[in-house]
Amino acid sequence: HSHMSHTQVIELERKFSHQKYLSAPERAHLAKNLKLTETQVKIWFQNRRYKTKRKQLSSEL
């Protein structure tokens, strides 16, 4: 499990705020920019979407 830097997370968050789903080319581009693997980016987005979904569910209770 590799640790992401604060800067990388900020960039991922910024991208996520604009779009929740990335196409393969977008993911490849973002990964390259942030010096991450595409898998890391993919998993981060999956986890981030899951967290957002959970938060929405709990706020509706």
Rank of each mutant, 00 (worst) to 15 (best):
H1D: 10
H1L: 10
S2Y: 13
S2K: 14
H3Y: 09
H3P: 09
H3Q: 12
H3D: 10
M4Q: 02
S5W: 04
S5L: 05
S5M: 04
S5I: 03
H6W: 12
H6Q: 10
H6D: 10
T7S: 12
T7E: 14
T7R: 09
T7M: 12
T7W: 15
Q8L: 04
Q8Y: 01
Q8F: 03
Q8N: 02
Q8A: 06
Q8E: 02
V9W: 13
V9L: 12
V9Q: 08
V9Y: 10
V9S: 04
I10S: 12
I10G: 05
I10V: 07
I10C: 15
I10M: 14
E11W: 05
E11K: 06
E11G: 09
E11M: 09
E11Y: 06
E11P: 02
L12W: 02
L12S: 00
E13I: 07
E13K: 06
E13M: 09
E13Q: 06
E13H: 04
R14D: 04
R14Q: 05
R14V: 11
R14F: 14
K15I: 15
K15Q: 11
K15M: 13
K15F: 14
K15N: 05
F16R: 02
F16D: 01
F16H: 02
F16K: 01
F16E: 02
S17N: 10
S17E: 13
S17K: 12
S17M: 13
H18T: 13
H18W: 05
H18P: 02
H18C: 14
Q19D: 06
Q19F: 05
K20D: 03
K20H: 08
K20I: 06
K20C: 15
Y21T: 04
Y21I: 04
Y21N: 03
Y21C: 07
Y21K: 04
L22V: 04
L22T: 01
L22I: 05
L22W: 02
L22H: 01
S23R: 04
S23L: 02
S23G: 04
S23W: 02
A24M: 05
A24V: 07
A24K: 12
A24F: 11
A24S: 07
A24P: 10
P25L: 14
P25M: 14
E26C: 08
E26V: 04
E26N: 02
E26W: 01
E26P: 00
R27T: 12
R27I: 15
A28D: 03
A28Y: 05
H29G: 06
H29N: 11
L30S: 00
L30D: 00
L30G: 00
L30H: 00
L30C: 06
A31I: 02
A31W: 01
A31K: 00
A31Y: 01
A31L: 02
A31V: 00
K32G: 05
K32N: 09
N33I: 15
N33Y: 12
N33D: 11
N33L: 15
L34H: 01
L34S: 01
L34A: 02
L34M: 03
L34F: 02
L34T: 03
K35N: 14
K35I: 03
K35Q: 13
K35W: 04
T37Y: 03
T37M: 03
E38N: 06
E38K: 04
E38D: 07
E38V: 10
E38T: 09
E38L: 06
T39L: 14
T39V: 08
T39E: 14
T39M: 13
Q40S: 03
Q40D: 05
Q40H: 02
Q40P: 00
V41L: 03
V41P: 00
K42Y: 08
K42D: 10
K42R: 15
K42C: 10
I43L: 09
I43W: 06
I43R: 09
I43G: 04
I43D: 08
I43H: 09
I43S: 06
I43N: 09
I43T: 06
W44F: 04
W44P: 00
W44Q: 01
F45Y: 03
F45I: 03
F45H: 00
F45A: 00
F45L: 01
F45T: 00
Q46T: 05
Q46D: 07
Q46M: 08
N47A: 07
N47M: 14
N47H: 13
R48H: 07
R48G: 04
R48F: 04
R48A: 11
R49C: 07
R49H: 03
Y50R: 15
Y50T: 11
Y50H: 11
Y50G: 11
K51I: 13
K51R: 13
T52N: 12
T52V: 12
K53F: 05
K53G: 09
K53W: 06
R54H: 13
R54Y: 08
R54S: 12
R54L: 10
K55L: 12
K55E: 14
K55W: 05
K55H: 06
Q56R: 11
Q56G: 12
Q56F: 08
Q56M: 08
Q56D: 11
L57M: 11
L57H: 08
L57C: 13
L57T: 10
L57F: 07
S58H: 08
S58P: 15
S58V: 15
S58D: 15
S59M: 07
S59I: 09
S59D: 15
E60Q: 10
E60A: 07
E60K: 06
E60P: 05
L61G: 14
L61W: 03
